[in-house]
């Protein structure tokens, strides 16, 4: 079990992490959801032993964690002038693998991220998605017990993202503990069994997706465009729920009145039902509820 107790990290006068506590169980896939600058990467670097906390404790400590830890950094941390095979051989050797074991693990890793055929190709000729997949493979060569993924899908095409998710899902089912940081709520919701929402260096909420959604005082979410026709309606609805304008393009409304009443009032203003998209609230709504901001606003 990974235990993080009251971890605090400051950079000068700025508090990046403020008394953060977490318990990660073996085999768990834990999501760390928050906007950029929330403290996700700082927490990852503390768990990886790359930084020292100013307060609190992480157990197991730096030396104990390193041997069984794999880190997928936010950047594509590869030697792009070398081939995929050469990169994995270097990282494998640095993790203590040698000879036949090394060759076998490199082959397995390339196979797992569907890059076997590109083994002898120079990494800089790869697409962004392929580089991200190789970035992930490099962290898994030594079969770590804990995998830290720090926003590993930034700038990745949907196909590669799916391939990464499938692979991580498989690894987690095989017993690998994963801590996955992201600012994409869809990723956290899809991949993680438990999610911690972090903002301004504090864990605001922690639990399964259902537990987090249960924090919301409303059950529905309605999205409609921000136009001259809907503006008056939005103003009238504001006192009857939580209304958020997203980039001036659309409204996100969490009604605290019955849906039938909502649509009746829309009809009074001759607004057709097709303007309104109704959905179950997402983690975005949870974040909004907890912080008063959307994840997108804070990126």
């Amino acid at each position: 079990m990974l235990s993080i107790r009251s971890i605090t990290k400051r950079f000068g006068g700025f508090t990046a992490l403020d008394e953060v506590s977490l318990e990660i169980s073996p085999g768990e896939c834990f999501g760390l959801l928050g906007p950029n600058g929330a403290g996700k990467t700082t927490l990852m670097s503390l768990i990886a032993g790359l930084r020292k906390p100013d307060g609190g404790m992480i157990s197991p400590g730096k030396s104990g964690a390193r041997a069984s830890l794999g880190l997928v950094p936010q950047n594509v941390a590869l030697y792009t002038d070398l081939t995929a095979g050469q990169n994995l051989e270097i990282f494998g050797k640095l993790q203590g693998l040698r000879g036949a074991t090394l060759r076998e693990r490199v082959g397995e890793a390339l196979e797992a991220v569907q890059l076997s055929e590109r083994r002898k190709d120079v990494v800089k000729t790869f697409s962004g998605g392929m580089q991200r997949r190789l970035n992930l493979a490099a962290a898994l060569l030594h079969r770590p017990g804990l995998l830290l993924c720090d926003e590993p899908t930034v700038g990745v095409d949907p196909q590669s993202r799916n391939a990464i998710f499938d692979y991580l899902g498989q690894l987690n089912r095989d017993g690998l503990t994963i801590i996955y940081s992201t600012h994409y709520m869809e990723e956290a919701a899809r991949l993680c069994s438990r999610i911690g929402i972090i903002d301004h260096g504090k864990i605001l909420a922690l639990g399964t997706l259902d537990e987090l959604l249960a924090l919301l005082p409303f059950e529905d979410e309605i999205i409609f465009p921000n136009t001259s026709e809907t503006k008056l309606f939005a103003e009238r609805m504001a006192p009857h729920g939580k209304l958020v304008s997203e980039n001036g393009a659309q409204y996100r409304f969490f009604p605290q009145l019955k849906l039938s009443e909502f649509y009746r009032r829309a009809e009074e203003l001759n607004l057709p039902a097709r303007l309104f998209a109704q959905q179950r609230p997402t983690l975005e709504a949870v974040f909004l509820h907890l912080t008063g901001r959307t994840l997108r606003d804070t990126k």
Partner: peptide, 14 residues
């Protein structure tokens, strides 16, 4: 450092 390679190396036994 910019590419994150030092971070990756430091997270291993390097």
């Amino acid at each position: 450092k910019r590419a994150g390679l030092l971070q990756r190396l430091m997270s291993s036994s390097v």
